Simulated scan of single mutants.
Amino acid sequence: MDWVERTAQLRQWTRGGARAPHKPLLFLYALSRFQQDADDELRYSTVEQDLRRLLAEYGPGNRTTPAYPFHHLVSDGVWEVRTERGPGSPGTGVTELRETGAAGRLTPELRAALRRDPPLLGRMTRVLLDLNFPPSLHGELCEAVGLELEEAETGLVSAKRRQRDRRMREMVLTAYEYQCAFCGYDGRIGTVPVGLEAAHVRWWAFDGPDDLENGLCLCSLHHKLFDKGVLGLGEGRGEAHRILVSQSFVGRSTAAREHVITLAGRPVIGPQSGLRPIAAAHRSWHTSQVFQGSPRPATTA
């Protein structure tokens, strides 16, 4: 059985590019717990808050109970649930999962495969991260679920995987003249740009293309905040866009105000003349699937 391929083919609800990372987040959490204790069961009532936190932190704006993936991941053949009554999940009801003492863990076949081939855990983790989250979140997501990922095993063989365009970064940075589209930062060490990154507006994992109409040159800070939904793109005059800052963001320090809050309503620094700005479809996807809550009103100088 090809567990890596099965991991890549988790059945997820999808419509119009909407994100549904509920199963991948639970799977990552379960792999982490296996890494810590291969025989441990995850009692729903015990892990519910951890899963709820992960969904709130790394899921889309529309909240879903962790009972949903706890029940439905069983259908993918990698997860099993039992209750005090015996094998089988009681359903997606939170009350039923709590009251029946529902507990889940990786299937016996998968646990055996992970024991035989320890690097398999790393390969499966890479698939879950690559297909569901942008690279800027991989490190902190592993920390959030408690996974210690071995760097030695990063390969994934799958004919169905799209290949990234390695020219994307240079193409985007050149188009934006090596400055952050949100704050104008343009740092270099000698002739080498430092702290500047090419951000996908519509994530690559969700069919976001490697082209200029889906790319922004952002500094490392604003790239992370953009991928976390703190910052977004709103409509502006003509082809220009304006910066959105989430009302959910809280920062009382001078640095938080200067680097984040005061960006609200500012125009985005666009690409060079003659190059097209972010496509409306990609901007709309980010607004609906990543941006958190409502935008703050524009700040005044």
Score class of each variant (00 low, 15 high):
Met124Lys: 02
Thr100Asn: 14
Asp76His: 12
Gly77Pro: 02
Leu121Gln: 06
Arg105Ser: 01
Ala67Thr: 01
Gly122Asn: 15
Val78Ile: 04
Arg105Gly: 01
Arg105Asn: 04
Ala113Pro: 00
Gly122Leu: 02
Arg85Tyr: 15
Pro118Thr: 09
Val94Ser: 10
Gly122Arg: 04
Pro87Thr: 07
Val94Trp: 13
Glu84Asp: 12
Val78Pro: 02
Leu106Val: 06
Met124Cys: 06
Ala112Lys: 06
Pro118Gly: 05
Glu143Pro: 06
Phe133His: 07
Arg116His: 10
Thr107Asn: 11
Arg111Gly: 03
Gly104Gln: 01
Asp76Pro: 02
Pro108Ser: 14
Arg82Asp: 11
Leu110Glu: 00
Val81Met: 03
Ala67Glu: 07
Arg126Glu: 15
Leu131Trp: 11
Pro108Val: 00
Ser136Gly: 13
His71Trp: 09
Leu131Tyr: 09
Gly101Thr: 06
Pro135Asp: 13
Arg111Ser: 02
Leu110Cys: 01
Leu110Met: 09
Leu73Cys: 05
Glu143Cys: 14
Ala112Gln: 07
Ala103Lys: 05
Leu147Phe: 12
Leu128Ser: 06
Ser136Arg: 02
Leu110Lys: 00
Val74Met: 09
His71Met: 05
Glu99Ala: 06
Leu97Trp: 09
Asn132Trp: 05
Phe70Gln: 08
Ala113Glu: 03
Arg116Glu: 11
Arg82Thr: 14
Arg85Met: 09
Trp79Gly: 00
Thr100Val: 11
Gly91Tyr: 11
Gly104Ser: 08
Glu84Val: 13
Pro119Cys: 04
Ser136Thr: 06
Phe133Thr: 04
Glu143Ala: 13
Glu84His: 15
Leu137Ala: 15
Gly101Glu: 10
Leu137Glu: 14
Thr65Ala: 11
Leu128Glu: 04
Val78Tyr: 03
Trp79Phe: 08
Leu128His: 02
Trp79Gln: 01
Glu96Val: 13
Asp76Ile: 00
Gly104Asn: 05
Arg98Gln: 04
Leu73Lys: 00
Val94Leu: 12
Thr83Met: 08
Thr125Val: 06
Leu147Cys: 09
Ser89Thr: 03
Val127His: 02
Thr100Ser: 12
Leu128Cys: 06
Pro119Asn: 12
Met124Trp: 04
Arg85Leu: 14
Ser89Gln: 11
Pro118Gln: 09
His138Gly: 08
Val74Gly: 13
Arg123Asp: 10
Gly91Ala: 10
Arg98Met: 03
Ala102His: 07
Ala113Gly: 01
Glu96Pro: 08
Pro119Ser: 10
Ala113His: 08
Leu120Asn: 08
Glu80Trp: 07
Ser89Lys: 01
Leu97Phe: 05
Gly86Gln: 06
Leu120Ser: 14
Arg98Ser: 11
Ala102Met: 08
Asn132Asp: 11
Gly93Tyr: 13
Ala103Glu: 10
Asp130Glu: 14
Trp79Leu: 03
Arg98Thr: 08
Glu99Phe: 13
Gly93Leu: 08
Pro119Asp: 12
Leu137Pro: 05
Arg116Thr: 07
Phe70Glu: 06
Asp130Cys: 12
Asp117Val: 02
Arg115Ala: 04
Val78Cys: 01
Pro118Trp: 10
Arg105Trp: 03
Gly86Leu: 04
Glu84Ala: 15
Pro90Gln: 11
Leu120Ala: 11
Leu114Arg: 04
Glu84Arg: 10
Pro108Asn: 15
Glu99Val: 09
Trp79Ile: 00
